[in-house]
Design a protein around this nucleic acid. Structure first.
Lengths: 137, 137
DNA sequence: TTGCGTGCAAAGGTTTTGCATGGCA
DNA sequence: TGCCATGCAAAACCTTTGCACGCAA
């Protein structure tokens, strides 16, 4: 996996570097486009989508769609093992997306598979609820 | 919950009856529109979207965004009041909704609250993944 | 030189919105 | 009668695609 074929270009390098620079943070295509639009080397929208799709296929980044369905988010995957990635909690009040690195949740994946036969795609699932700020505020 | 406010109309009744007729099956807005377009009483696209949104807010139906992210799916929830006691797994391939009554998942709720300060609304959360049939088939 | 990668613009599809009309209470 | 719901069309939106040019190998 991740054996990139084809030519290597400036846009490829910069896009991947940008995603790598903020591991555990997700970016929308629009955000990425806006970021580079503000630099001296903008990247076209089509190129961004084409490259994000390619990187997703190669398993280098992960794509996920929130329940709102507004737009897709992309995030760099630090570890090769997809299953040990972190989890997402979405506050229903303030809309904040919280990234959680938690072993107990990780075990749930095994439990779901072995006891319920369900192969949980943790990267796609979002836990809805109230964040600490909103509960106490 | 489910105390519907506002006026009652033919479109509302028919849309809900249509969704109720196939519990455990999901429908896209386009499918619903096509269904009624073929009858003597079509329902406008805007109305369908507005009503689906309302029904989702009221907890009568549930909205999903599948793997492809192409469009949203909507599904009638049977015994909505009972579903707060257990958990839901949605197969990303066949669309099947699996109801899970599981103590281990219940404990996660406590863990999320005590260790991460997040008050998980389990009734709203859906675990996405592959069901046993789709994994083995 | 070869042919993939890029950028622009246009198309594609889904969902939302403005506004006048229709219909429930 | 007072308002909410509906329907049409247009807009808004995200994403994909066609095509000519640029550029890596």
């Amino acid at each position: 996996m991740a054996s990139r074929t084809g030519y290597r270009t400036r846009q490829q390098e910069e896009l991947l570097r940008y995603l790598k620079a903020a591991p555990g943070r997700h970016h929308t295509a629009a955000e990425i486009h806006a970021h580079f639009a503000a630099t001296e080397q903008p990247i076209g929208t089509a190129t961004i989508y084409r490259r994000l799709e390619r990187l997703t296929e190669e398993g280098i980044i992960r794509k996920y769609v929130l329940e709102t369905g507004e737009c897709a988010c992309y995030e760099y995957i630090e570890q090769a093992d997809q299953c040990t990635a972190h989890f997402h909690c979405k506050c229903e009040r303030c809309g904040r997306l919280i990234h959680l690195d938690c072993d107990e949740l990780r075990e749930i994946r095994t439990h779901l598979l072995e006891h319920h036969g369900f192969a949980w795609n943790a990267g796609k699932t979002v836990f809805y609820g109230l964040c600490d700020r909103c509960r106490n505020g």
